[in-house]
């Protein structure tokens, strides 16, 4: 069970990805691009995916928002690159369930992402952590690949 204080959560996990986001920027060419925002706080994100057969060949994101939303999206792009669309979709669902407190999540599947569990203690911030993941799921749906 991960039990980070807020300070640890920020310092050990979030800030690394927030300061040096992975796969940030436009992805061209791409097969699907989808923009979503969190109407409550104004955070914005756009997720770009280029498929390689049934796999996520390349993925990138653009966005403006708080450190949790941007760091979570950055971690997501690292994690799902190369996965099949099916596995990436399942991972996104797992993350959503984990944030809803419905599932613990297997540490070996989650890897670094397990630290996102620290956000569960801050219910109003769960939407921030899920903005990228929800957008990815919708992008898969839009592409017809899921």
């Amino acid at each position: 069970m991960v039990c980070l204080s807020l300070e640890e959560l920020y310092k050990e996990v979030i800030l690394d990805h927030y300061r040096a986001p992975r796969n940030k920027g436009q992805l061209d060419p791409h097969d699907v691009a989808l923009e979503r925002n969190n109407p409550l706080c104004g955070d914005e994100i756009e997720v770009f995916v280029k498929f390689d057969g049934e796999n996520v060949g390349a993925i990138a994101f653009e966005g403006k928002g708080c450190s949790i939303s941007m760091a979570s999206a950055s971690m997501m792009t690292e994690k799902v690159q190369g996965l099949t669309v099916k596995d990436a979709g399942e991972l996104a669902e797992t993350i959503k369930k984990m944030m809803a407190g419905e599932e613990e999540g297997e540490p070996e599947v989650l890897g670094d992402l397990v630290s996102l569990k620290g956000v569960v203690k801050y219910p109003v911030r769960i939407k921030c952590a899920l903005l990228g993941w929800n957008t990815l799921l919708e992008a898969f749906e839009e592409s017809g690949k899921n």
């Binding site: 450190s67 109003v124 911030r125």
Partner: peptide
């Protein structure tokens, strides 16, 4: 970011809007 600020301030008992 204002949201990070509001969460951090909350830990100090401070209620602000973001």
């Amino acid at each position: 970011h204002p949201h990070d600020m509001a969460t951090i301030l909350d830990q100090e008992g401070l209620c602000i809007r973001a």
